[in-house]
């Protein structure tokens, strides 16, 4: 009860605060490139990006893209719908299946649960960045050789999780490989083949 009272008192003071403070505008740029539609919150450097978003620069697989994104756009939506990089798949859209896994600044993340705006200026790696023209990345080659996919829908995310593992740990143990793909659901059940593929690549790397 007392908490509720406190809350409503706070509501009032917040409203009167806003009334008094008004809305000013500043031109501070938050993301890496020019801003559209930035307005200031109240007094100074707590910058707020409007619902329509701002233009940001994205570094995807070493290529720079300028794109205006509203704050609510996820990284998966940016990649697939704005940049036409549809290799990244969206299945659950809730961070539970790992199909949308990409690597941002050296860390695997679910692109469906990452806001695009938060990835601006960071190094984003997707499945499209692995092959060099027609030449497959060793990990992709190993997936093919070991039949590590059936329907293929989980594969881009699965490969990115494996790449992230090998980037940090070139000689993983089997339990480490299992743990690395524990966030990637494969309904076809190709895990044993995925494990073999990753172990194969790490063996090659060790030679």
């Amino acid at each position: 009860m007392e908490e509720k009272k406190n809350l409503s008192q706070k509501e009032i003071s917040r409203r009167s605060f806003l009334k008094g403070a008004g809305i000013a505008s500043v031109g501070a740029v938050i993301a890496t490139t020019a801003s559209v539609d930035i307005k200031a919150d109240t007094k100074n450097d707590s910058d707020v990006i409007g619902k329509n978003g701002i233009s940001c620069e994205f570094d995807v697989n070493g290529k720079k893209y300028a794109q205006k994104v509203p704050p609510r756009t996820t990284l998966a939506e940016l990649l697939r719908e704005d940049l036409n990089l549809t290799g990244t798949k969206v299945v659950c859209d809730r961070g539970a299946c790992g199909a949308c896994t990409v690597i941002v600044d050296g860390k695997s993340v679910c692109s469906c649960m990452t806001l695009a705006i938060d990835s601006a200026g960071k190094k984003i790696e997707t499945i499209e960045g692995l092959a060099n023209g027609d030449e497959l990345h060793p990990l992709q080659e190993a997936f093919v050789n070991h039949d590590a996919l059936q329907c293929g829908f989980c594969t881009p995310g699965m490969v990115m999780s494996c790449k992230n593992l090998l980037d940090h740990n070139a000689q993983p143990t089997l339990p480490e490989v299992r743990k690395a793909v524990s966030g990637n659901l494969c309904r076809c059940g190709t895990y044993p083949h995925v494990f073999k593929a990753v172990m194969d690549v790490s063996g090659k790397k060790g030679e």
């Binding site: 938050i30 007094k43 450097d45 707590s46 910058d47 707020v48 990006i49 619902k51 509203p70 806001l115």
Partner: peptide
């Protein structure tokens, strides 16, 4: 849709 505040310091969070 939502606006997005990006405070850089803890002190700025409260205002946002």
């Amino acid at each position: 849709s939502f606006e997005y505040a990006m405070p850089k310091r803890t002190a700025d969070v409260f205002r946002a």
